[in-house]
Design a binder for these strands. Structure first.
Lengths: 203, 203, 203, 203
DNA sequence: GATGAATGAGTCTTCATTCAT
DNA sequence: CATGAATGAAGACTCATTCAT
């Protein structure tokens, strides 16, 4: 990587980092491009060299943050699987969910930022656009997980959809609004619901 | 009601109707107060006589539209109950869900407008603020429905929360994004999931 | 006074009292006619029955408040003269100044409201417009005070002008800004300066 | 200075000059930012690149104009001192006052604009904020003037305060209102009053 | 590649004033 | 006399985007 290219990467990272800090503190609508560039220490025009507009940098941030969340969740699953061979599918899914939920609970700013973006729609995007998430192959991982035990499913896609929407929506509500209860109190009910849903989808 | 008061109501309704039309066609961010008033045929200042700001008129609109949705759903339930005495709780809930979902499916603009606003948070608001929804008593109706058969529940509040979040999130995704399938295809799975969740919450 | 006229006076006083309270708490520019009428409990249109516009009610307030200030000062002088026959002119003037200054010091909101309005220009207005100040005859009183001891003056009008401007400007600055010292510290210097100015004007 | 920077200075000066012209002809409240920018031939947004808001450009204008007034007065003093060695302090002060007064008399629009801003408060500001007035060191110059003859003072700060307030208030009143006499008629009395005040403050 | 001055359309909001009831 | 709904001109200010340097 040449010096110029290195410099370019540096600026891009600076823009991403500072915009994330501003988005999560001031809020997205109250953060202007001007705020971002002056915070990142680059000229206003430079922003447009790296990103098309505000939504573009938001998308990149969501992708980055989601990728981290997913990677960490899959790592957790790997460890859990190693310690518990023959884990049923529903427990694998709950392990992943638990990892993501815990990360978001520890980091409410991230939760607020990902807002409702961490939904199925995002994973569809991630599946289509290979550049969006680089180190995780969403589809492949999911297929491996649900098929590892020889189980059969009515519609594994809709099962994923249902679970993701339930988790993201309910957890988001709790973390952001603090109602109707704490995440710890809710978890047992959520996980039981997930188990029930998984069984509903068995062929 | 005097002539003046009648006229006032007329203007208010005109503002609500025209703003709704604009919000659902141009989108909320691209609809300015100017757009609304010129469309409604009143002076710009008049808007501020009836509403505090844009969010205020949006809230009124959400309340109105949600109220209609709920009223219609409860009507459907009443008819269904009359025809099917001793209906199990999960079927009552599904009847309500089906009514709301169908209404939204027939009216995607309304779905898009209600966006993520038709979630549990809204019903909490509606429960607290008696003025928000006038002709439906959310809490009372819900209690009547789940207790009518003498059933016992672990936590009926969290059950409601879980179901509402699942429905609103998944249905919204389908109607707005059109993925991963059509609403008709999804309904059986959704309703089965709801049944499973309800059973999970039985004491 | 008929009942109607009494009611009229009541409304006028209410408008004056509430506008004064608003002017001195929110500030004149941030107080709208709407604020005044809703605070006074009358309709917006009613304001225009009693006053031409904002400046009009301000002028009325200044006149009222100044009149009180002057009346109280002349009372003080009368008492002081009774106790000290043959008081030199400069001491009479200082007695008046002391009374006004003390009143303003006790009531900084009044000081801020009268702002720079309590200047010579005001007394000129008061002299010309008999309706502005009703119970005090500025010119007559002043003439009586400076001529009572048979003193002769180069130009008694300019003397009054000089003294009023010095007092109002310096005292206002101290009360409003709190600099460069407290009013108590400043008084000896101010009074000495007044004495020096008076002597300068002796014929 | 690069071409760009030069251009920037030009625009800033244009904004200052045109706003001054508008402020002094239409009055400050009746001059909008729009008026200023369209008069200066720049876009509305450009104004906010150079100034925070209306008050900001007013402050800059006051500082500029006051600085000129002071510089010219100190120049006059220097000439007068050169021609009259051993000038008493009161005459030095009167020389300065005379210069400022004459300038304002020649330029009533400037007098009206500086309004009551050319008071002690301003010089305190100027003393604290070195950026406000760049080519005059208010405090240093004043100290040099009153101490040059070895005189001793009770409180030189309060003396300055008293004199400045008297001058600014009385002169402003005359120039703006035209009462109670012309500046030429008033000057002898004012200068005598200043002399008397100075002597009052001698230790 | 990078800069940052300049743009100007567009936003929300206020408010003195009027006038039909 | 009093009301208060309605007006609409006018205001301050923002900001994504461009482009000459």
């Amino acid at each position: 990587m040449g010096k110029a290219e290195e410099n370019k990467k540096l600026k891009l990272n600076s823009l991403l980092a500072h915009s994330y800090k501003l988005f999560t503190t001031k809020g997205i609508p109250d953060t202007s491009i001007s705020d971002i560039t002056s915070s990142a220490g680059v000229a206003k025009g430079t922003f447009y060299f790296y990103f098309r507009d505000k939504q573009d940098i938001i998308d990149h941030l969501i992708a980055r943050k989601s990728e981290n969340l997913l990677k960490s969740a899959l790592d957790s699953l790997k460890k859990h699987e190693a310690a518990n061979p023959g884990l049923p599918v529903e427990e694998k899914i709950i392990t992943i969910a638990d990892s993501i939920i815990s990360d978001l609970d520890k980091n409410p700013k991230l939760a607020r930022f990902l807002n409702r973006n961490l939904n199925f729609g995002f994973y569809v995007k991630a599946y289509k656009d290979e550049n969006l998430i680089q180190s995780v192959n969403v589809r492949e991982d999911y297929d491996r997980i649900i098929n590892s035990n020889g189980d059969k499913w009515k519609d594994s896609g809709l099962m994923l959809y249902t679970i993701i929407e339930l988790i993201s929506s309910s957890v988001h509500g709790i973390i952001i609004n603090g109602t109707p209860c704490s995440l710890e109190e809710y978890k047992p009910y959520l996980f039981d619901s997930i188990r029930a849903i998984v069984n509903t989808f068995r062929a």
